[in-house]
């Protein structure tokens, strides 16, 4: 069903030509402004990218204890609360540790994750966080979209989106000029409060 929307229009508006000219004038104003000022709200992604606010929910990482082992104790609270049912944990017993229980495997299917952050809230151990600021959660295979324990534990060191890892691993498929070591990324601080 369609509903007709009533808009009162003045005579000038109904002529259209003046309105078109008014629109062109606004565009011209912005064009001239941008020619002489450097305060555009857009960034030239992917050559530049924003620094994400602290509470931005990006890719998950697993936090570690001072000895390098993951803090996670495989309690399954996150897997239980996850509305997308995308967390799979296999628990195991650590014979040496006082903590006894640890995740042998920990996987998140990022294709199913809805970035609600419930897993972070549910965790009694502060073992899972989404504070990486990484929003480029992409890959060329479905399998790579399942982030596993090793990947999520190292995420903060590498801070590389998976696509770059893929190109590093398959250099013949990388776009011209891509060099895994070079950092093309210029971070843009969002101090203008955009």
């Amino acid at each position: 069903m369609t509903l007709p929307v009533q808009r009162p229009r003045s005579f000038l508006e109904r002529l259209f030509i003046p309105e078109i000219l008014r629109g062109l004038y606004i565009t011209l104003q912005h064009g001239l402004h941008n020619l002489f000022h450097q305060d555009q709200p857009t960034v030239e992604y992917p050559d530049m990218r924003r620094v994400m606010p602290d509470r931005y929910k990006g890719a998950h990482r697993l936090t570690t204890r001072p000895d390098g082992k993951v803090k996670c104790v495989a309690c399954m609270c996150c897997a239980q609360v996850c509305p997308a049912r995308c967390i799979t944990i296999e628990a195991g017993e650590d014979a040496d540790e006082p903590i006894e229980k640890y995740p042998v495997q920990f996987q998140i299917d990022m294709l199913r994750c809805i970035y609600c952050g419930y897993c972070v809230e549910a965790c009694p151990k502060d073992a899972i966080r989404m504070d990486t600021g990484i929003y480029e959660i992409n890959s060329f295979t479905r399998q790579d979209m399942i982030h596993d324990k090793a990947y999520m534990t190292d995420l903060m060191d590498g801070k590389k989106p998976l696509a770059e890892k893929f190109y590093r691993d398959q250099p013949d498929q990388a776009p011209a000029g891509f060099d895994g070591t070079q950092d093309r990324v210029v971070s843009v601080d969002d101090s203008r409060g955009l």
């Binding site: 104790v73 229980k101 151990k125």
Partner: peptide
Amino acid sequence: DCPICDQS
């Protein structure tokens, strides 16, 4: 110990 307790 609830997070690691099987009785939980």
